[in-house]
Design a binder for these strands. Structure first.
Length: 277
DNA sequence: ATGGTTGTTTAACAA
């Protein structure tokens, strides 16, 4: 971290244990102060804490379960509190938050890291309980963030939301409108969380309206770059009071070409925190 | 219209 800026990366790592070398590369290339990870697929006692700390991230908050899900926030900057919450009555480790004190006045900035359920294949709550879980999760996410922002502090919300809300967040709106991640009901629920809480959807806000923005490319395409059938499933949202502190953002598309890559690429935001008062 | 791949864990399951 410079004294001026703080860089936060969000990445669905799809197993932290097999991609530690890639995490190291991302640290070298992007030099983030804080990294939010999803799909760590790693139980708490198997979390590679020492390796992460050797990369320079002394402060670690993580919640994981075997085989599936799991989230982590690793940081060079000390946080003063960890926020843990279960959603939908399940202990499936899809959320973790941390509270920092930043800027000259040591103002509270809360960072929220989400891994929204993918929702299965069939976009019908009567046939597919995983899709119902996804919609229920979004409702609870709405309420959780409503309670969180009641303190009128600074909030950064990141994660794999598993929803591409805008028409140009997918390679073909027409072909994906009945595909889970881009159905009307999911898109409107996600957009409602953003708009009703007055968040800024950073990656879309700083793009042209007709510009395609992707963070994920399926493993099931032979050549992801050639077919370029991407979706913007990963998000960074900030409260309006942080918009004036926005410095930069980045989608690290190069990571999709790593050897044995995750299907998601890291996204980042840089905030100028020195003048937070 | 269908199938395509990956990770965890070892036959499915989830993404």
């Amino acid at each position: 971290m410079t004294e001026q800026n703080i860089k936060v990366v969000s990445w669905n790592i799809n197993s932290i244990r097999i991609r530690l070398e890639q995490l190291k590369k991302i640290v070298t290339e992007l030099n983030p102060d804080i990294i939010c990870l999803q799909e760590t697929k790693c139980e708490n006692d198997k979390f590679p804490l020492a390796s992460v700390q050797e990369l320079g991230y002394k402060y670690v908050a993580h919640r994981g379960q075997a085989s599936y899900n799991g989230v982590a926030i690793i940081s060079r900057v000390q946080f003063k509190e960890i926020i843990e919450k279960d959603f939908c009555g399940k202990s499936d480790c899809r959320y973790i938050g941390t509270e920092f004190n930043l800027g000259t006045k040591k103002k509270s900035v809360k960072l929220h890291n989400f891994y929204v359920p993918a929702g299965g294949d069939e976009p019908d709550i009567n046939k597919n309980p995983k899709f119902k879980h996804k919609l229920d999760f979004l409702d609870e996410m709405y309420q959780h963030m409503k309670a969180q922002i009641a303190d009128d502090q600074y909030h950064v919300i990141v994660g794999d939301m598993n929803i591409a809300p805008h028409v140009n967040d997918v390679w073909s709106h027409r072909q994906l409108m009945n595909v889970v991640s881009h159905t009307e009901v999911e898109r409107s629920k996600l957009l409602e969380i953003i708009s009703k809480h007055n968040f800024c959807d950073v990656l879309r806000y700083y793009a042209e309206e007709d510009e395609k923005v992707y963070s994920w490319w399926s493993y099931r395409n032979r050549d992801w770059k050639k077919s370029n059938r991407g979706r913007r499933l990963d998000h960074i949202w900030i409260t309006q009071n942080l918009l004036e502190h926005y410095n930069d953002h980045y989608i690290y598309q190069t990571a999709r070409d790593f050897e044995r890559p995750s299907d998601h690429v890291p996204i980042s935001i840089t905030l100028q925190v020195s003048n937070i008062t």
